[in-house]
């Protein structure tokens, strides 16, 4: 077991299901035999504000917050929030992002515009970038609401955790009737 700690950042908009995704990640890491810590701010998350969850795993984890500029993987649920969070990543870090645009209030009001070509900008800074159409793949898997699980599958491929741990984590965290569909959505993401 390596002594180093792996740092994952999950970012998006309040209400997108980021907390559940970070719970599944943490569960899988614990099942994989690692120490895990996670931290997030959820006081106002339901009100559509920016949300960031930090998950860290390794032999022994101290800080629950990822040290600035030391993120290994940025797991973005929304394009603007993904781009906004790039400074948290280390040089050469990995980005897995959902191809989804949720306009913030100032854009809804027509006062500012949603930044253009975020895909190109992210790729220019972080070549290890995977763009996932989570909504489309989740619809193929049976439910658009499983978009997070598709993304989780795509992230899982970049982590050294046995597949059985992921399955057990999903079994624990996802309601039974939605389990098979979520496992399929996870596979689609993992096979990307």
């Amino acid at each position: 077991m390596s002594n180093s700690v792996t740092n994952i950042l999950l970012v998006g908009v309040g209400g997108q299901g980021i907390l559940l995704a970070s719970e599944i990640l943490s569960e899988a890491f614990m099942l994989g035999g690692f120490d895990v810590k996670k931290s997030e701010i959820h006081g106002m998350s339901q009100r559509g504000g920016s949300v960031a969850s930090h998950v860290r795993y390794g032999k022994e984890v101290f800080s629950p917050i990822v040290p600035e500029g030391e993120g290994d993987i940025l797991f973005g649920f929304e394009m603007l929030e993904t781009y906004r969070s790039l400074p948290l990543l280390k040089k050469g870090g990995t980005v897995v992002a959902n191809d989804l645009r949720i306009p913030p209030p100032s854009v809804l009001l027509g006062q500012e515009t949603y930044p253009e070509d975020l895909t190109g900008k992210i790729e220019a800074l972080f070549p290890d970038f995977t763009l996932v159409d989570g909504q489309k793949l989740a619809t193929e898997a049976g439910n658009i609401r499983a978009a997070n699980t598709v993304l989780l599958g795509a992230v899982s491929k970049r982590l050294d955790i046995p597949e059985v741990c992921w399955r057990q984590a999903l079994e624990k965290m996802v309601p039974k009737k939605a389990l098979e569909m979520n496992i399929q959505a996870f596979r689609m993401g993992r096979d990307l």
Partner: peptide
């Protein structure tokens, strides 16, 4: 090594009433 990446000012995303 640890100097942070700078990106341009972006539209903020404060919480809002539902």
């Amino acid at each position: 090594e640890t100097s942070p990446l700078q990106i341009e000012k972006l539209p903020g995303r404060p919480p809002n009433m539902c």
